[in-house]
Amino acid sequence: MKKRVLVVDDEEGIRLLYKEELEEEGCEVTLAASGEEAIEKLESDSIDLVLLDIKMPGMDGVEVLRKVKEKWKDLPVILCTAYPHYKNEFGTWASEAYIVKSSDLRELIDTIKNILEMKQ
């Protein structure tokens, strides 16, 4: 069965890019443009993994991460952000991985694959 990945990012370009790449890797992709929308999607769809941007207007990634860990304890989350700075603060805390955004998507794809495989 196809794995369903939720991509949460306020930048449209990033959402589209991740969607296309991940679909090519055989995932089903759901998109959310804000933290609020992400929670909605999590309530309605069954998601296997979340790709989460940290810096978003309104409800930010950290808040989303906290909610996710309360409600969907075993759902893996990859923090995916433009800032390497947060790594120490959030990296080991609750997310499965922390990735600094890059136009080279290999690290991201590999990490997603690893996490999904381990879950099986």
Binding site: E11, G13, I14, L17, A82, P84, K101
Partner: peptide
């Protein structure tokens, strides 16, 4: 820098790679 420039760069380079 990180936010305002890295994000557009990611889509730019990512789409170029596609």
């Amino acid at each position: 820098f990180a936010h305002e420039i890295r994000n557009p760069l990611v889509s730019l380079g990512g789409f170029a790679a596609r």
